[in-house]
Nucleic acid binder design. Structure first.
Lengths: 198, 198
DNA sequence: AGGTCATACCGGACCACGGTCCGCTTGTGC
DNA sequence: GCACAAGCGGACCGTGGTCCGGTATGACCT
């Protein structure tokens, strides 16, 4: 027997709207992969999805949000791992270890989805720092920081630990500077170790 | 008796070009201050300077670079202080102290010119990390890091120390999060201390 | 001085893109 | 069926950035 996940407060979304959302996401995913994120205009996505441009913007608001929406599935998996997954990413390990595992997971994610993540940071006029995925990451890190260093300024430390995981920074380190993924993980591990020592 | 500063290798810049550059910079400075950076289009700057839009773009390349050019004088002062100014910002103090002084100077600069610095970061598609002011800051920090921690991965540590001084990060901490300038300086001081300990 | 020439420079028409708007259409609950 | 809001789509706007035909400038020569 199926129970509704939540008794929807709003009148339920129309069927064609749902279908269109999916078609737009599929189109975006396909075009991003085919010709690169930077070479894919919103018009092209609308055309590929067989939908008017207005529809794209109504469903997703702007380009940055559409990019994030394309990664939503992957983001959900990550969040699930943070909350209920096995240690050290999930609960059960000491905070410093969890932070290191979080950094490694984020770096893997950046390696895999760099183009799209970068796009969402660059086109959001800085608002990605207030996007919902970022907020979740922030809460997670802040909680671990507060556990590891109850004395310190948790807000500031959280920023310090999240900044090197931004897509723009990653792209620069990885591709302009030529650092390897392992170097970045090692560096981040050191950083966490130093910042969480009493 | 006047000596030419440098025996210009290129044929010297035309007088009208020089005059136009200055008029554009003045116009941009004025409009940025009057109506805010975000509300000032390149067309408006060209009009205010009494110049065609093409001229603006030829002289400055793009919006991000124009923003940086507006701050050039201030940047020059800062760089001069780093190289020849009094300790601890200039030479003579231990590296850790110089790094802290550098952070404080950068934070003051952000407090004063936030709008313009933010604009140059946001509209450069991430290329501000390869701008000449950033390159100078990077070399400076990297040198100090290498002195303080000859054993460590200087490249990575340099990124870590520069990331919290970006305009986007600063804007978020200062205005969304409501941290005070002193909190940020204190936080940065702690960061440097922890990262430079042997 | 005055004239001539190559060319750096100018300016505004032009383009593509992100994003908005609003009149028409279509699905849905009654 | 009916009414009505949710949804649609494409014309439209302002913007950053490019391009190229025409022009003014400064070097050189006489």
């Amino acid at each position: 027997m199926e129970l509704p996940v939540l008794p929807a407060a709003q009148p339920r979304e129309r069927a064609d709207a749902v279908a269109n959302r999916q078609r737009i996401l599929d189109a975006a995913t396909r075009l991003f992969a085919e010709r690169g994120v930077g070479c894919t205009s919103m018009d092209a996505i609308a055309a590929e999805a067989g939908v008017g441009k207005g529809t794209v913007f109504r469903r997703f608001g702007d380009r940055a949000s559409l990019a994030l929406a394309v990664l939503d599935a992957s983001e959900t998996v990550l969040q699930e791992s943070l909350i209920r997954g096995p240690a050290p990413l999930g609960p059960g390990a000491p905070p410093a270890e969890r932070l290191i595992a979080f950094g490694a997971a984020m770096l893997d994610r950046l390696e895999e989805h760099l183009e799209i993540l970068r796009e969402s940071e660059l086109t959001s006029h800085g608002a990605y720092l207030r996007s919902s995925p970022y907020a979740v990451h922030r809460i997670h890190v802040r909680m671990l920081v507060a556990q590891a260093r109850p004395d310190a300024d948790a807000d500031y430390l959280t920023d310090i630990l999240l900044a090197p995981l931004s897509a723009v920074t990653f792209a620069e380190q990885r591709h302009t500077r030529g650092l390897s993924l392992d170097q970045l993980k090692a560096g981040y591990g050191d950083l966490v170790a130093r910042l969480t020592r009493a």
